[in-house]
Computed example of a mutant assay.
Amino acid sequence: MGRVGEDMTMYFSTRDFAPSRRVNEWREAVFSHCGEFQLEFDRPDSEANLQLRRIGSLACARLSQSLRRVYRTDTQAMRSQSDDGFVLLQLSGTAQLTQFDRRTSLLPGDVTLIDAGAPFEINLFERNSQICVHVPKDSLSDAAGGWQGRFGGKLPASTSYLLHSLVGSAFGPADCFSQEQGNILVTAFLALLANGWQDSAATKEAPVEAESESAQKVKTFIMAHLGDEMLNPRTIASAIGVSERRLHRIFSTKGESVSHWIRQCRLERCANEFRNPSYRERSITEIAYAWGFNDSAHFSRLFRKEFGVPPREYRRAALTH
């Protein structure tokens, strides 16, 4: 995430190296093409992929990796002398961003803004895929004023959906659009950012969606224990150190319930693995049980209600496209 080279396209995978070399090769690839960061690995032989593309003048990096933590120290931030922002699009997996004492949970579909010239930290709770768009702060200023207050927050869901669709188009065929079309997409990209910031629903109390520290703490705990079938309001409240009443109040302020939020996250994790060819050999029941479900028939009903088709049909369609 961050500085990307001048090449229009590039693809890098640690699969091309022996397991013992993967950590060093990945670190070198990230430093060379994205900038200087501290990387804490989940395992020494982790597989990771990096793909670089451009949308007009904007450099984009798509990363898929199994790390525990990515962060930029004060020294690294000063050394980078960066005058840019990172627009981070969460594709899969879950993470938590901390910058300027602001914590934000990132779920698939979310979009956030990071100040590249300041320290930040991203904790990853499972394998993550993200796209980072490198945007000069001058361009942010031209698009909308007051963007400095948006660092570390999330854009509204409707804006995030459109940004995912637009930026995702850059990772189709390398020659899928011309430079002129790319410039048009840059204009649309910046306009969507400005529109999201100015959305009255998102700016009533803060420029972007922000969650209380208590909500962040609860959701971080839930995402780290999502595969535990014993995860429920009572065990969560006990682990976090709040009453069950307080726990339910945290979610009710956003019109949610604890159990519903857990169920939705579990279903999304299952759907992610159904779409991933790496999990082709695992049965639907194995994947469902790994994410905390304990009744295959009940899981199938919930999945069909959420996605409109049975798990088997969803998986078959996803893997044949």
Rank of each mutant, 00 (worst) to 15 (best):
E180N: 10
K154Q: 12
Y161F: 10
K154M: 12
E213K: 05
R269T: 14
K204F: 13
A188S: 14
V186F: 03
L190I: 12
H248D: 12
S259I: 13
S165E: 14
S212T: 15
G182C: 08
A206V: 11
E273M: 12
H260T: 15
A170M: 07
G172T: 11
C265A: 15
L231Y: 04
P277F: 07
E205I: 15
A239D: 04
N195D: 13
A239M: 04
R282C: 12
R263F: 02
L267C: 03
E244A: 07
Q198I: 14
K204S: 15
G168L: 06
I262Q: 01
I222E: 02
S259P: 03
L166V: 12
W197H: 05
N294P: 00
A191S: 13
I222A: 02
P173V: 09
A194R: 06
E211F: 05
A174H: 05
R263P: 03
A215E: 01
S278R: 12
F177R: 07
T253W: 00
N272R: 05
S160D: 02
T159S: 05
I262A: 03
I262V: 15
I240C: 02
G146L: 06
L193P: 03
D199Y: 02
D228T: 14
A201L: 14
S259Y: 05
I222C: 05
V258H: 01
A201S: 14
S257I: 10
K204T: 15
G182N: 06
F177A: 09
A188P: 01
S259H: 00
C176D: 10
S165A: 15
V186A: 07
A206Q: 13
A188I: 08
A271D: 03
L247K: 01
I287M: 04
R249C: 02
S214A: 14
E281Q: 07
C176K: 07
N183I: 13
M230E: 10
M223Q: 08
E286P: 01
E213A: 12
L163M: 08
P233Q: 14
L193R: 01
G227Q: 09
P207S: 10
P233A: 15
R245E: 13
E268R: 10
V167Y: 00
M230A: 13
P207K: 01
V258S: 00
E273N: 10
A170N: 04
E244D: 09
A191C: 11
E281W: 00
A202C: 10
P207N: 09
K219F: 00
C265E: 05
A174M: 06
F274T: 02
S200C: 02
L247N: 07
